[in-house]
Amino acid sequence: MINEKMLITKNTCIAPKIYELTVQGDLVDLIREPGQFVHIKVSDGTLPLLRRPISIASINRNTKELTLIYRVDGVGTKTLSLRSQGDRLEILGPLGHGFPLDVINQGETAVLVGGGIGVPPLYELSKSLSKKGIKVIHVLGFRTLEDTFYQKQFEELGKTVIVTDDGSSKFKGTVIDALQLLNLNYQVMYACGPTPMLAALENGYSDKPLYLSLEERMGCAVGACMACVCHTVDEDDEKGYRKVCSDGPVFKSGEVKLSC
């Protein structure tokens, strides 16, 4: 991991409050697996003071670019959305452990389940799985059709079911409702989204390998400040906890307790 002043090559709004940010630099060479994240200093001053952890949505090793998709939700992401192409952003990364690719074989099927701003890291995951010859099915939930992003990109890689709370896409309901209806045949499931969604998946889909990417407020993002810890399910575990930033953010279902 390095701390690099990366060049912004793109920072545009792609859906209401949703921005696609592309930065260029050597940090890209160090990314090992999909699902890792970076820690961004969005401004040079103390407003805001702390960095913002954002998951990597896709990488292009040829152009040394990585893409992040974030939702403007507070002062940090608002400030980030105002940074323009040609500026440099101080970025620490790559951080954390991402989605494992060696748990599934060529010719098998993976289901990728995403909710809202949890969808972005699944894109690089889907690209990596597809490259390995794994069939991918995406079940992605958004509030409304208007909030949807990257539908076309996901469709290019595999079957993509868009679910919306208000039914403005073809499918009304939650990703859990959709999964029940679709009754998919698959080998491994990967998910990223709100904690209640992850908890529901853990409840209903732990019979096959299930990997969950967690979100938590972070301080340092390198494992030192102990802000983002969660309990292990195994009460006899030697440590009894995991750090979302450095042990995760991706965990196998059943490893840590989900708090929601």
């Binding site: 940090g76 938590e216 407020r217 972070m218 802000a227 983002c228 810890v229 309990h231 906890y241 708090s259």
Partner: peptide, 10 residues
């Protein structure tokens, strides 16, 4: 183990 999360706020 310490306190429940969230444990930090900016």
């Amino acid at each position: 183990f310490g306190n429940p999360t969230p444990r930090v706020a900016e």
